[in-house]
Design a protein around this nucleic acid. Structure first.
Lengths: 187, 187
DNA sequence: AGGACGTGTTCGTCAAACCGAACAGGTAGA
DNA sequence: TCTACCTGTTCGGTTTGACGAACACGTCCT
């Protein structure tokens, strides 16, 4: 599942704006001036009244020095721990490849976080994901050949690689008990 | 630096919409119907004419099953490798703590990726980052005590933790050559 | 041909986002 | 107190995004 939370984030935007503005120590008047919009507009937005245009919201994001998405999607944070081997294992047809989901794309986020454990054997081939997906892999221990089919590389412990996830790619462990962190980033 | 690319992404949105729509194999008419907007509106948006409201763009994101940000920010990807010990080391006052930047927040992204190597000694204390930052840590090898001050936990190889980055937090290695992957996520 | 359905386009109308000014409250200083 | 300046609010007027119908193509089937 990607994002697609049901309702449009009208009041989320309202709260985000106020939060970010106060965090930045700006007055409503000053922020409106910097963003080049009428302060009445900003006032109404923070009141939850209204449905800003992209241009307006963008200008506010720039003026606040905050990524666009922070304004339209709610914050969320908590301490959460998954002990080694305790997370939900992702079903895999190959027994010598186990991916544990550490942090699933929460509503509004854009990456999944996996812990991958694999043994030598048939390479695991992944069909292209959604367009725009980028994968990052950090080898924790062992050795593996991975990357897009055709430009896969051999990596060892401590090595890092990033590659497009929307083309076929593979992961083949070269040593037993090879462990890696995999980030699948949506963008 | 966060995001804040200069100009509003009017034509970026245009291209994103067309790309995602064709990728999904939907006709303009059909997508408009599913999103519950007039097809004329969608037509003009894909033509680069117009400045959609958040509600409109949100509806399109939902109908396309695509995170909001994918519509407003351009794609980008490439294969890139950083061999162990080869990345730019982040300056640290403490010699027993080395963070290597694997993937810096590119224009429009919202996370930094670090490889952390540390030895036992004074805990590394981090002042709160920007509001809304979430950190994820995966211990590759060794053992460490980490988390928000007051609720730090002891983790071993393979363990994973996530916690808010906008409160004071610490990282203290308990074994020599403790290695971890750190993701600092902006949201 | 001539419909019957697709596609995506352009047009006039209406609602609403945006603007600027006028407004009420709060604090600082003469 | 009276003025000056700040805060954020509410109010008409203008601009413009969104709608739906009418439009110009293509394709297929009768």
């Amino acid at each position: 599942m990607t994002n697609a939370s049901g309702r449009p984030p009208l009041d989320t935007i309202a709260r985000s704006l106020r939060r970010e503005r106060e965090q930045a120590g700006l007055s409503l008047t000053e922020l409106a001036r910097r963003a080049g919009i009428a302060k009445s507009t900003l006032s109404q937005l923070e009141a939850g009244t209204g449905n800003p245009s992209v241009e307006t919201l963008w200008a506010l994001g720039v003026a606040l020095g905050v990524p666009f998405s922070r304004l339209v999607e709610p914050p969320q944070a908590a301490v959460r721990v998954i002990r080694a081997g305790q997370g939900p294992a992702v079903p895999s047809e190959q027994s010598h490849y186990v991916a544990t989901l550490l942090s699933a794309c929460p509503p509004g986020a854009r990456r999944d976080l996996y812990l991958v454990a694999a043994d030598p054997g048939e390479p695991r081939l992944s069909a292209p994901h959604l367009a725009g997906v980028v994968e990052h892999v950090m080898i924790s221990s062992g050795r593996a050949e991975l990357g897009p089919v055709g430009s896969a590389l051999e990596l060892g412990a401590g090595d890092y690689i990033t590659y497009p996830g929307d083309v076929p790619h593979l992961f083949r462990a070269l040593l037993p008990a090879t462990v890696a962190v995999l980030i699948s980033e949506y963008r």
